[in-house]
Computed example of a mutant assay.
Amino acid sequence: MDFALLLVIAVAVTGVGYAADALYFRSSRKRAVGNYLNGDQRSALDSEVIAKLEKEPLWAEYSRSFFPVLLLVLVLRSFLVEPFQIPSGSMLPTLKIGDFILVNKFTYGIRLPVTNTRVLELNEPERGDSMVFRFPEDTRLNFIKRVVGLPGDRLRYENKVLYINGKPAPQQFVAALPAGNPERKLLKETLGDVEHEIYNSLEPGQNMREVVVPEGHYFVMGDNRDHSNDSRYWGFVSEELIVGKAFAVWMHWEGWSSLPDFSDVRLIK
């Protein structure tokens, strides 16, 4: 089940419990204590009886404790910043497997949790953004790719070069990879105002005929160009599927066999 849906349900359940206790059951406990103190029968056990009458039921205690925390997490995660972990190498060399990233949830507009419906329009994705979105073929999955095509753009990919509206995206050779990976080379590519690094294989690649990006959609590609499942294979990303813009790596953790690494904290180009 979607974590966002679980979080919304948890907030709703604890919120109802918190409100019910605050508006009714708490005052009922106070009335019970008052009735007891006004009674004729008194004993040395008064303090124990009063404590029992005042004691919150377990559900009320849990609601009071967890509701504010869960509500804060829901607001932060839904409208401000959400963390994600990179599961694949499709965005190498920009993002490595095991990188933990932060995603700005409001830069492209405020969206409701679960439904992802945009209720407040702010900015639109720009060419070169590292964007998180729901995978069009399975919206339960979140993908991260780089925005290369905006609505109305004409795009084609030929001989490892991306052409946007008939012009090649500038590329600059940086280096061949270290021994053990001689089939790849590192290049710098410029998309709009964003200069970022990409990997290209030395083996022949698959070309893509020219396509036109429809209105309300975006064309995305991974920086690891020959090892990325992206718009070249499954099409465009609808505006309705956008989650947010990735802006920082805050931790790297490859798995339980290693310790989290905070030495490579950085902004994402």
Rank of each mutant, 00 (worst) to 15 (best):
M1V: 07
D2W: 14
D2G: 11
D2V: 10
L6I: 15
L7K: 02
V8F: 08
I9H: 00
I9Q: 00
I9S: 00
A10R: 04
V11C: 11
V11H: 06
A12G: 07
V13Y: 01
V13I: 10
V16I: 15
A20L: 15
A22F: 07
F25K: 03
R29L: 12
R31S: 12
N35L: 12
Y36R: 15
G39W: 14
D40H: 07
Q41T: 00
R42V: 02
S43N: 09
S43F: 04
A44R: 15
V49Q: 15
K52E: 12
E54P: 05
K55V: 06
E56F: 10
P57K: 02
P57Q: 08
A60E: 13
S63D: 06
S63N: 03
S63W: 00
R64V: 14
F67M: 02
P68V: 01
L70Y: 03
L70I: 01
V75S: 04
E82T: 12
E82W: 05
P83E: 14
I86W: 07
L92S: 09
I97E: 15
I101M: 11
L102M: 15
N104D: 15
Y108T: 05
L112E: 09
P113Y: 13
P113F: 12
T115K: 00
R118Y: 10
L120C: 09
D129T: 04
F133Y: 11
E137T: 04
L141T: 07
R156E: 13
Y157I: 05
K160T: 00
L162V: 05
I164K: 07
P170Q: 08
A175E: 11
A176D: 14
A179D: 11
N181E: 14
E183F: 01
K185A: 01
K185M: 06
L186C: 03
L187M: 09
K188N: 13
L191M: 11
G192R: 08
E203D: 12
E203R: 06
G205P: 03
G205D: 09
Q206F: 03
M208E: 15
R209M: 01
E210A: 14
V212M: 12
G216C: 06
M221A: 01
M221L: 02
G222H: 05
G222D: 04
R225G: 01
D226T: 10
G235R: 07
G235L: 10
V237A: 08
V237D: 08
S238F: 09
S238I: 04
S238Y: 12
E239Q: 10
E240G: 00
E240Y: 01
L241R: 15
K245W: 06
A246H: 06
H252A: 01
W253I: 01
E254V: 05
E254K: 09
G255W: 13
G255F: 10
W256V: 13
W256C: 04
S258L: 09
P260H: 10
F262N: 04
S263I: 12
R266G: 01
K269H: 03
